[in-house]
Lab assay of single mutants.
Amino acid sequence: NITNLCPFDEVFNATRFASVYAWNRKRISNCVADYSVLYNLAPFFTFKCYGVSPTKLNDLCFTNVYADSFVIRGDEVRQIAPGQTGNIADYNYKLPDDFTGCVIAWNSNKLDSKVSGNYNYLYRLFRKSNLKPFERDISTEIYQAGNKPCNGVAGFNCYFPLRSYSFRPTYGVGHQPYRVVVLSFELLHAPATVCGPKKST
């Protein structure tokens, strides 16, 4: 009989979030998941669920729940959905087409922007091929755009693959930082360890 609440607040209220290319994953298990708490945590810009209804979450049980978190800019949030393409979905964080879970995003301009520009958040701009779903690539190998090998040196047709967002508070919403948490629900042929409040007794 599990009584402890799932530590969603640790994920959502973390002081620092990860850069999207090096997104963070927390496995959540053996706890009571009260998803209604999430609705009250922040004024969400996005709370979209796929393959599951957000209002039914509190009635369900899962084997595992994974919470992935990272920062992107406002106009990239739409890429965090099944079947999307674009720089983020292709080279940084890719959801599977049959994704079961929820994408939660909110504006973090007050936390993640600086007047002089916050350069701490990076994204991958160049990659030889698209990522597979939930693949994480943290390599910093020089990207070869031409025929000549780069031998690890940046220059003509040889690019450092990561680029930094420079978040400034005066930017338009599309270029402001957004914190994203992706909850993916895993149903294996194994005992369910993460249940809503109704199912945990």
Rank of each mutant, 00 (worst) to 15 (best):
I72K: 00
S29L: 06
V20W: 04
G152F: 06
H175T: 10
D75Y: 05
S129T: 13
V194H: 11
V71P: 01
G196Q: 11
F126I: 13
P197K: 15
A81D: 03
V180H: 00
R27W: 06
P161T: 04
N13T: 07
N87I: 15
Q144K: 08
N87K: 11
L187G: 14
L131H: 02
K148S: 13
V181C: 05
K148F: 10
C61G: 06
T46S: 14
Y21K: 04
N1C: 01
Y159V: 10
Y39I: 12
S69Y: 05
N30P: 07
C195T: 08
E141F: 06
D59Q: 13
P191Q: 14
H175G: 14
Y171L: 15
L95H: 00
C150T: 05
R168N: 15
H175F: 11
R25V: 01
V173L: 14
I2W: 11
G101D: 00
V181L: 06
I104H: 00
R78H: 12
K110V: 09
P149A: 13
F70E: 03
K199L: 13
I2A: 14
W106Y: 07
Y143G: 06
G101I: 01
G83I: 03
I28L: 14
C150A: 05
A67T: 03
T170P: 08
N40G: 09
Y50M: 01
K94Q: 01
T193G: 11
A145Y: 10
R136L: 05
L60Q: 11
V194R: 10
N157P: 05
N92G: 03
F12Q: 01
G155Y: 04
F185Q: 01
S129F: 08
C31R: 04
G117S: 11
D75E: 11
Y39T: 14
P197T: 15
T3K: 10
C31M: 04
S164E: 13
V194D: 10
F62D: 07
D97L: 12
L162I: 10
V20T: 03
I28R: 00
P54Q: 13
Q176F: 01
S166V: 10
H189M: 10
W23A: 04
N151M: 11
R179D: 03
D137W: 00
R127W: 01
N151P: 07
Q176S: 05
E76Y: 01
N109T: 12
G146Q: 06
N107H: 04
F99D: 00
Y165Q: 05
D90G: 04
L95Y: 00
Y119V: 14
R136E: 04
N157S: 11
V115L: 14
D98W: 04
I80L: 06
I28K: 01
N130V: 15
E141S: 11
E10G: 06
F185E: 01
R168V: 11
F44G: 15
R124A: 04
G172H: 14
T170E: 14
E10R: 08
S116F: 11
Y143P: 06
T170L: 09
G155H: 06
Y91K: 06
D34A: 05
D9T: 09
A192V: 13
A18R: 05
N109L: 08
A14H: 06
P54W: 15
K128T: 12
L41H: 15
F47C: 13
G51I: 00
K132A: 12
K114L: 10
T15I: 06
G74T: 01
H175V: 07
R73K: 11
P161S: 03
F126Y: 15
N13R: 04
I138C: 12
C6K: 02
L111C: 08
N4V: 10
R179K: 03
G196R: 10
R16I: 10
I2H: 12
S129W: 08
D137Q: 01
L131T: 04
L41W: 13
R78I: 09
K110P: 08
L122W: 12
T3G: 08
A14W: 00
G74L: 02
G152R: 08
K132D: 09
R25G: 02
K56N: 12
